[in-house]
Write a protein that binds this DNA or RNA. Structure first.
Lengths: 160, 160
DNA sequence: AAACATTACATAGCTCGGCTATGTATACTC
DNA sequence: GAGTATACATAGCCGAGCTATGTAATGTTT
């Protein structure tokens, strides 16, 4: 705990903001899940999204990016492959590993879901001014950056 | 659907931002869950948080606020009561209903969790300037407002 | 006021996403 | 070539989410 307020660099305020940020994120995620019910689950889209963002990668890496344990990712990939949304490509340099790539239909499905979801929540955000939209966009970009940077680090952070 | 682009009020841009907002939220929620593993689940904290924000309320209302189905909330409340974090109070005006209130220890547990969580993610956000922090704060406030307004509406929106 | 409809919550039973522990095959190292 | 490390798969569990349905209290109707 930062017991000594050597020089107040706004840590206290930042902490408050982060607390609320997480709470709001939790709520929004729940809302999104509820609105697109019947469709596939958030985990599916999160995984596809990570694959799109990071390009083809191995299962373990994808698990780290998506912040789930490796066996969880094995399951997710299984169901994604079944749906034809992800393709397994043997890694030429390592017979143990397989590279994973989003297929065309996988990408299409993801974007269709995104469109549907946005359509569902858009009414709630209809009254935003251009300036407010820009504020949210900037905040999202800031948070995104911090999240991406974190994934790599944590690999070595695990105890044992 | 707003089919006619009568005047471009930035809907397209807003849609993009919302898509990314949801994706980032999903990721952040996952990160938070992973960091505080071993502790209780996000659903527990989300529920307690809703109770704190909205004050004592009936189970059905809490379910709506927390955006889960009623039976799901029944389960959650059960485990919260077991932990002594929520108290059931018979509703004097309706014998079928019970009012739910966060206990002192429930509130304390929630704040402890929040502190722990913030401590865990704070390093990732350490480099933020005061201005960036403010941007995130404003965005969170904006989103929060839209989320809160939505819960009530949806009650009547359900088909059948 | 008896009967019916509605409402508020509980129960049953299922699925899925998350975890740990462990197995198996390939790769590395000496 | 034996032993260790790595990449993924399997097994088995738990919690959170859902629908469908049950039960008791309330409201409504004649």
């Amino acid at each position: 705990m930062p017991q000594n307020p050597a020089h107040d660099d706004g840590t206290a305020e930042l902490a408050t903001v982060l607390g609320e940020l997480v709470a709001a994120s939790n709520k929004l995620t729940r809302m999104a899940a509820q609105l697109t019910e019947g469709a596939e689950s958030p985990a599916i889209w999160r995984t596809l999204s990570a694959l799109r963002a990071g390009g083809s990668m191995r299962l373990g890496e994808l698990a780290a990016q998506s912040r789930v344990a490796q066996p969880t990712m094995t399951k997710l990939v299984h169901s994604l492959v079944e749906r034809g949304w992800v393709q397994r490509i043997p890694d030429p340099s390592d017979a143990r590993a397989t590279l994973l790539a989003a297929t065309v239909s996988g990408t299409a499905a993801m974007e269709a879901w995104r469109t549907e979801l946005v359509a569902a929540i858009l009414p709630n955000f209809a009254g935003l001014s251009a300036e407010e939209t820009a504020t949210i966009a900037r905040a999202v970009a800031l948070v995104q950056g911090r999240l991406d940077g974190a994934a790599a680090h944590d690999e070595g952070t695990k105890e044992h």
